[in-house]
């Protein structure tokens, strides 16, 4: 089994205890709720999209350390990006989690690469991907996303 220290990296634990953008937006023009029935994780995601760009993003909810850190890192990485760029980021991020050892674009992923260790823990991939499914649902105008 992969080392626990690859999963629970310092920076993830820090994002877990002090998540970024952990707030509700006053007037989001996109929002969705994500739910992982397996472990009871819930996330409420709020987006303010202006001219195809993620002008602001916030999230709330409860979840495990991986899901909180992944949500926090996601909000950081998509803020200021175009919707198309965020979608591209999701594709690369998903590849990193589901194809262990794949040659991923580290420059594109940035801090998201700290979550690469999750790939070795198949039961935890859903935790790391919930916020992204929720983002997708919000962008598509759906109200809820689920990992099942």
């Amino acid at each position: 089994m992969a080392e626990l220290s690859h999963l629970y990296q310092e920076i993830l634990l820090e994002h877990n205890s002090k998540p970024r953008n952990f707030r509700k937006l006053e007037h989001p023009n996109h929002s969705a709720d994500g739910y992982n029935p397996l472990c009871g994780d819930r996330i409420n995601l709020y987006l303010d999209i202006k001219d195809g760009v993620v002008a602001d993003v916030g999230f709330q909810g409860s979840g495990c350390a991986i899901s909180r850190a992944a949500s926090s890192l996601m909000t950081q990485s998509i803020k200021g990006k175009t919707v198309a760029e965020a979608e591209q980021l999701f594709r690369e991020y998903r590849r990193m989690l589901t194809q262990p050892g794949a040659d991923v674009d580290g420059e594109l992923l940035g801090d998201l690469e700290f979550l690469a260790g999750v790939a070795a823990f198949p039961t935890r991939i859903k935790c790391a991907i919930l916020s992204w499914h929720t983002l997708q649902a919000a962008l598509e105008g759906k109200e809820t996303a689920t990992t099942e």
Binding site: M1, L4, C39, G63, C64, A65, R124, C127
Partner: peptide, 13 residues
């Protein structure tokens, strides 16, 4: 301070 899911993964290790 720790979510049960994280407890489970660490105990499994």
């Amino acid at each position: 301070k720790v979510h049960p899911h994280d407890i489970g993964t660490i105990l499994d290790a």
